[in-house]
Design a protein around this nucleic acid. Sequence first.
RNA 1: GGCGGUGUAGCUCAGGUGGUUAGAGCAUACGGCUCAUAUCCGUAGUGUCCGGGGUUCAAUUCCCUGCACCGCCA
Length: 512
Amino acid sequence: MSDLREKIYYITTPIYYVNDVPHIGHAYTTIAADVVARYQRLTGREVFFLTGTDEHGLKIEKTATAKGMSAKELVDEVVERYIHLWKVLNISHDDFIRTSEERHYRAVHAFFKRVREQGQIYLGHYEDWYCVPCETFWTESQLDNGNCCECGRPAERVKEESYFFAMSAFQQRLLDYLKEHDDFVMPKSKLNEVLGFLREELRDLSISRSSFSWGIPVPDDQRHIIYVWFDALINYLTAAGFPDDQERFERLWPADVHLIGKDILRFHAVYWPTFLFAAGLPLPRRVFAHGWWTVEGEKMSKSVGNVVDPEVVVEEFGVDAFRYFLLREVPFGSDGDFSKTALKGRVNSELANDLGNLLSRTVAMVKKYRQSVIPMADTESVHYREFAALHDEIRQEVAAAMADLAFHKMLAAVWRLVEKCNRFIDEQAPWALAKDESRAHELDQVLYCVLETLRLLSVYLSPVMPEKAAQMALQLGQADPTASSGPEVFAWGRLATGGEVIKGKSLFPRLE
RNA sequence: GGCGGUGUAGCUCAGGUGGUUAGAGCAUACGGCUCAUAUCCGUAGUGUCCGGGGUUCAAUUCCCUGCACCGCCA
């Protein structure tokens, strides 16, 4: 209880726009966030993991109208797709926020008023191109020879009253901040992009529209609806208890990391910090922009028809193989390619041959040579000490990799243990030791070291592959890998001995 | 058009603040073991480190330039 004021580890995904059904990109961000959340919980941190949906705006209003339903009915329907997918993918979020919720309405109003009181919001005029039939605004560059890029009909210049946020007033402050905090935007290449567009002069941001009604109205001016990003970004505050629950808010804010796709970098690394400056609130500690997936070498697009439905992949390959592949295949932050060949390749060579077979052969040997009973450790044995030293090294590598969200490095480090065990078994040849009664103690130590490493593997892998990790522990006769938490969970030498291993099904059957 | 990135083994990529034999995984070939999901272990490779020029005793690594591809901005 003395830790009541300890900072809670707060991680977010973006809120996904419900005009679209979820695809591999949404799954990627959310799985990555889930792995971080599970890892942090494992180390003993209290975690708040937030995801949700962005539900306002003209597009949704239009889609709903076209379908003959209300906007609220539409979003209620689509949001189920996301909620269901997160269940299928074993996402362990602590909260799911929807921008159409009342709590968000209150937060946006409080935030808007706060910024307005600082004199950073003013009423002005917004000028742009407008396509009347499509009821859509376009910027100059989006136009196709002066015509609407969607329907091809001529667009017209319109001028509309709008509230503006004085973003330009914060440009220098943001630049200074980025200079001081060069890990605020990650990876580095993305920080460079942010610095790149900060070299140009920032313009004030139009933050309201009067051309549609599905959204949160401006406080004290019902004619205006608060526009997309000003509404959406505040969700991170809403879920943290802003503005009503001050005590909770102080434990949660600032967020430790916002995970985002690289397409929304500008909004999170420029707009959002300036909003927070204006409101006098601290900035999130980190914004991490990951890359995009192509599919079988091609850009994913609706018109090509190659959009990957994560549920279909999970159906075919299993949820943990999918999660593993996404994090192992590509350094987090880079673009990657999703292909069935690559996925199958990793499943077979890494999950089935290396890991699954290691578990299988180990459990089989304990069963055969020791009547399934898990042998005791001899802490003085050479093997025991050698493994203890190796584990020390791996533990540090994993911690360093996770601090950088370098999931591929974390998995590579963990896989060194898998490789070590397979090599070790080969070198020690337990089948030979088993034939020589005088070497029984030696055999015990060989089996112990491999069993204990497998147990630790189930712990290390539990954030990435929660189901398979649990199955591993079960076959090893050990407690569920998430049963305990704290810095000591990665400590060597805590294998429960004396009990029995349980030969189960193949962890990852080979795919043909 | 402006800014930035990338170009290394058949494939995917590491790496090097210049210096003896440039690495990993996958794929390929051969050998070994038999506990295991025909799995595991070992060995063997091959590379004008994109082209050209410069600095240097020495460049794949630094500088300039060209080409190709990619990203961000406009």
